Simulated assay, not measured.
Amino acid sequence: MAEKTIMLNCSAGMSTSLLVSKMQKAAEDEGADYKIFACPAADASQHIEQEEIDCVLLGPQVSYMKGDFENKVKGAGKDGKDIPLAVINMQDYGMMKGDKVLKQAEDLMNG
């Protein structure tokens, strides 16, 4: 089982799939065992309820949904804590900088 689970959300789950691949490569390069996956924002609640998610990142195109996501992650983490949530930096997203987005996730998970 992976050490940490990072969920990325976008409109349809398609545009973030390439970013997920690049993040997984960056995690492998640093020897980290992460489960990183993308899903459409519409499916996020289901994943939050059924899996132990350590971090939620939103694609810039769904940043307007951050308020909704704040409610979804509230108390949904380990020991009833909030799951860390952030919007992916637009430049890092656009340039598909998996290493930078992974660092953003790690910083969030480490408080």
Rank of each mutant, 00 (worst) to 15 (best):
G111F: 05
S45H: 15
G13N: 00
V101M: 05
Q61L: 02
V62A: 06
A41Y: 14
Y93M: 03
M96L: 13
A2T: 09
A42Y: 12
G13A: 03
E28T: 11
E3Q: 13
E70N: 07
Q61S: 00
M1W: 09
L18A: 02
V62G: 04
L18E: 03
G31C: 06
G13Y: 07
A105E: 07
K78I: 12
C39Q: 14
I53E: 02
K35Q: 14
Q46K: 15
G98K: 02
E106P: 02
E28P: 07
F69Q: 01
K78C: 10
P84R: 04
K74Y: 12
A86Y: 11
I88W: 08
N89E: 08
T5N: 11
A38M: 05
L102K: 05
A27P: 05
M109S: 03
A42S: 15
T5S: 13
E3T: 13
L58Y: 02
G98M: 05
N71I: 14
K25H: 13
Q24R: 10
P40G: 15
N71P: 00
V20G: 09
Q104H: 05
V87W: 11
G98V: 01
A2Y: 13
E106Y: 10
L57P: 09
M95D: 09
A76G: 12
G75S: 10
E28I: 05
V73I: 15
M96F: 08
K81P: 08
G13P: 01
M109L: 01
P40M: 12
K100Y: 07
I53M: 01
Q24T: 06
E51Q: 11
E70H: 06
A32H: 06
L19A: 07
M95F: 13
P40V: 10
M1C: 10
I83D: 12
A26I: 07
E3K: 14
